[in-house]
Design a protein around this nucleic acid. Structure first.
Lengths: 217, 217
DNA sequence: ATACAGAATTTTGTAAACAAAAATGAAAGA
DNA sequence: TCTTTCATTTTTGTTTACAAAATTCTGTAT
C-alpha cells in the first residue's frame, strides 16, 4: 500500500463519513475540531475540505466555513436522470464493442449477486449491484465518462440507500433485470438493453423516493 | 462583484490559463514560482492546485508536485462521446418539457450566431456556439447534469479549439444544424433532434482531430 | 570524457503563529 | 422582561517558519 499524505488521509476519511451518512447534512465542519479528530494539521484538513467542495459534497457558506451538503428529493430525481443518461449512453457505446469475456464477467457478477442474496448477505448483494453498474461504465473504456460517473457520486449514493432496502422481491427483480441487460447486450439488441435498463433505474428511484419520504422528510 | 479569497483568485486564474492552453501540457507547476506570479501565498496556491487536481486538470507526480495534464487524441474522442451522451440525454429530457419561451431564446442564440459570423466576428460566433449547447443543458433544470457537463470541461475545450476554426462553410453548417435541432424540438420530433445533434457533434470531432493532428502531434 | 558520490540547493509537506472576521454572551438601559 | 451594545471568544483567512524529501551541481576517481 502506498502511503498517503496527511491531506489525502483526511480527504478519504471525510469522504467516507459523508457518503455513509455519518455526518449530519447541513452541519458545519469546523477546521480546528476536525483537524484534531482526524489527527492532521489544519492546512492538510483545509486541502481535504477544498477537494470535497470541488466534488460537490461540501459547500462554502456565504461568510466562510464548509458545510455538508444536503440531499433533497430533487437531488435523488436528478441523480436518477443522470444515471439513466450515463448508463444508457454506456450501453450504446458497448453494444458494438463489448467482448465475450466482458459479457462473461458481467454474468459472473450477476451470479455473485444471486448467491449472496440467496444466502442472506444483503450488503454483499448490494455491493454486487453497484459493481454491475460500475462495470458497465468501465467497459466503455471512456475515461471521461468514467470520471463523470464517479464524480457524480452515483455509486456510493446507490450503496448508501441500498443498505436500507430489505424487500426480497426487490432483489429478485433486480437480479432478473441485470441478467436481461446482459442477454440483450449479447444479442446486440440495443432497444431491449436500453429499455430494460431504464425501467430498472426508474423502479430503483421509486423505491428510493419511498424510503426517503418515510425516513428523512 | 463579490470579492474572492486569495485561493479563489489563484484557482480562477490558473484554470483560465490551463484551459486556454497557455500552460505547456505536462509541465510542472512549482508552488513558490506560481505563488509569486499570481501574488498569493503558497498555501492559497496549494488550495487552488488541489482543486484543479480534483477537476482532473492537474495530476500529482509520484514524488509529489503538480503537473499540467496532457490532452491526447483519445481524450478528444472521449470528450466527444461524453458530449454526445450528455447532450442527447438533455434532449430526451427536454423534448417533453421545453417551453415556448425557451425555444424562442434558443432561436435568438442562433440569430446571434448568424449575425456575428456574417459580420466576421468569429470569436463571438464561437461563443454563441458554446452558449447554444450550454443552454440546452441548462434548460433541463437538472443540476447534477449541469455539474457533470461543466466539470467535464466540455465548453471550454470546445471554445479553445473553436478559436482555430476558420472555414466559412463550417460555420454555415453549424448554424444550419443548430436551427434544425431547435425545429425538431419544437415539433417534438425526438429522433430528428437526436440524429441532428449526433451528426453535428461527430462533424465537430472530425474537424477537431484534423486540427490536432496537424498542429500538436 | 564519463560515471559516481556527496554536498548544496531547491521544492514540497507540515506545523505554528498572527490577524481579521464572525459568533457568542453578558451587562446596561428602556 | 426585552433589546441593544460592547467586550470576549471562536473561527477562519493569511503569513511565516521549519523539516524532510528530492533535485541539481560539483569535484573526483576511473
Amino acid at each position: 500500500m502506498k502511503e498517503d499524505s496527511l491531506a489525502d488521509r483526511a480527504y478519504n476519511e471525510l469522504r467516507k463519513k459523508i457518503l455513509s451518512n455519518q455526518l449530519l447534512a447541513g452541519s458545519r465542519l469546523k477546521e480546528d475540531e476536525w483537524s484534531k479528530k482526524l489527527d492532521v494539521n489544519r492546512m492538510a484538513l483545509r486541502e481535504a475540505l477544498t477537494r470535497l467542495q470541488g466534488e460537490q459534497l461540501l459547500t462554502k457558506g456565504e461568510k466562510g466555513g464548509f458545510f455538508v451538503k444536503t440531499f433533497s428529493g430533487e437531488d435523488i430525481r436528478d441523480i436518477r436522470e443522470l444515471r439513466e443518461i450515463l448508463e444508457t449512453g454506456a450501453i450504446r457505446l458497448l453494444i458494438e464493442k463489448i467482448t465475450g469475456d466482458q459479457l462473461t464477467e458481467l454474468e459472473r457478477i450477476c451470479d455473485d449477486f444471486t448467491s449472496m442474496y440467496e444466502r442472506g448477505y444483503f450488503n454483499g448483494a448490494c455491493e454486487a449491484d453497484v459493481k454491475f453498474h460500475e462495470t458497465l461504465i468501465e467497459y466503455t473504456g471512456n475515461q471521461k465518462l468514467i470520471n463523470a460517473y464517479f464524480a457524480s457520486n452515483i455509486p456510493l449514493f446507490h450503496q448508501k440507500l441500498g443498505l436500507t432496502q430489505t424487500h426480497m422481491d426487490d432483489y429478485e427483480l433486480t437480479d432478473a433485470e441485470h441478467r436481461e441487460i446482459v442477454k440483450a447486450l449479447r444479442m446486440k439488441d440495443l432497444e431491449l438493453a436500453e429499455n430494460t435498463l431504464t425501467t430498472h433505474l426508474v423502479r430503483g428511484e421509486v423505491t428510493t423516493l419511498d424510503l426517503v419520504s418515510h425516513s428523512f422528510l
